[in-house]
Computed example of a mutant assay.
Amino acid sequence: MTIRRLTQHDLDDCARLAKDRGWLPERHKWRLLFEVGEPYGIDAPDGDGLAATNILTRYGDDHAVISMVLTASRFARQGLARRLMEHVLEQAGTRTVSLYATDHGRPLYERLGFRVVGRAAKHTGVFAGEPSGTTRPATEADLDEILELDAELFGTDRSAVLRRMSGFGEQVRIADGGFGHCWRNDDNTVIGPVVARDEETARALIGDLALHAGGEVRMDFDLAMDGMVRWAAGHGIGDPWPVSKMVRGGDLPGDRSCQFPPFMQALG
């Protein structure tokens, strides 16, 4: 079975594959990943859609993220996920590569040279709180400042992704020393990315974005940030679903203490 580069015409089959594995279709998310990343797949030998997928997203010359590692249930345990992983790792070259792994997927990644560097968890709920009064909606004029701050604190170039925030998401907010964004997924509004020089600024941005979104929101936190996890729980955000943060090659870039909810797990 041949590995090929996927196109926008494959989005419906990606959504079908996600549903086959118990995921939501998340077409809005897939579409963004197709725009900023390199989607690869293997066609199902029975002619019915895709047998397997994954996506490589490059950040500059030093880092890349792998996501959407999916195999159709009827083709499980035939080595397709490994073939695709080996292919995208070759495409990544000398870059440090990271991903989020479920307990089910972790053994494969370990065999490919990934190591666990932390744990993170999805937290969901309806945010209860008051506006901070310290953040405001971002404008186009703020983009250069956002990109400069992110390059410093995230530690590598993801400007191509961040430039899409205003068109992809619900709102971008800025504060003194931080910025944040939220976007609508199939069943909730995701808060992320949030980058800030301190937890107080991050909390203000997250809270104001959640209040703007209304309804159920999702925030993914590094579980080492126990203060943020407790703060979120105190404002109605809980029900954690943990995964492992894994890296192959060098270390993760940037200052991890300033990186709060990611854009999405699929973008590191």
Rank of each mutant, 00 (worst) to 15 (best):
K122E: 08
G249F: 04
T53L: 05
F154C: 00
R163F: 10
G214F: 04
D176A: 13
M1V: 11
P45T: 08
P25W: 02
P25T: 02
D10R: 04
T102K: 00
D103M: 14
R197Q: 12
L108S: 03
V69M: 10
L209K: 12
T135I: 01
H235R: 10
K122Y: 07
W183K: 07
G167Q: 10
L147Y: 06
M228C: 11
L223E: 15
T134R: 13
A151C: 09
R58E: 13
R111T: 14
P240I: 12
E35H: 08
D222E: 14
D187P: 09
D150S: 03
V161P: 01
L89F: 14
R256Y: 13
R83E: 14
F263P: 00
M225F: 15
L70V: 13
S159R: 10
R27G: 00
R58S: 00
A160M: 07
V190Q: 04
P253A: 08
V88W: 08
P240W: 03
I174W: 08
P240T: 07
D144I: 01
E145I: 07
F154Q: 05
K122W: 06
R203P: 08
D144A: 14
H181V: 03
A224S: 13
V36Y: 15
L11I: 13
D176K: 02
T7G: 14
F127G: 07
D220L: 05
R77E: 00
T71K: 02
L24A: 14
C258T: 02
D61W: 01
S67P: 11
G22Q: 06
F168P: 08
R82Q: 15
P193S: 07
D150F: 02
M165L: 15
V247P: 07
R184W: 06
C258W: 01
G49P: 05
L267K: 08
T102G: 04
A151Q: 09
T102H: 11
A81I: 15
R111S: 12
H181G: 00
M165H: 09
K245I: 15
W30K: 00
E140C: 03
P25C: 09
R218I: 01
G129Y: 03
W23N: 03
G125W: 01
I206C: 06
E90R: 11
L99K: 13
H123W: 00
E152K: 11
P39R: 06
K29I: 08
A52Y: 02
G118F: 04
T53Y: 02
A210M: 10
P131V: 08
G250P: 07
A266Q: 14
A92F: 09
L70H: 11
G113K: 06
W183P: 11
A266G: 04
P131L: 11
C14G: 07
R77T: 11
I191P: 06
G49L: 12
H104P: 04
E148H: 13
G215M: 12
R5L: 14
Q265H: 06
D13P: 03
D176F: 00
E200P: 02
E90A: 15
R83M: 09
G178H: 09
P107Q: 10
E26N: 03
A81P: 04
V97K: 10
V97G: 15
A15I: 09
A72Y: 06
G268K: 01
A15G: 11
G22K: 10
G22T: 02
L267G: 01
I206F: 03
A52T: 01
A232N: 12
L84V: 12
R173I: 08
S244H: 15
D150M: 01
L211C: 05
L11E: 12
T201D: 09
F168D: 09
L223T: 04
H181D: 05
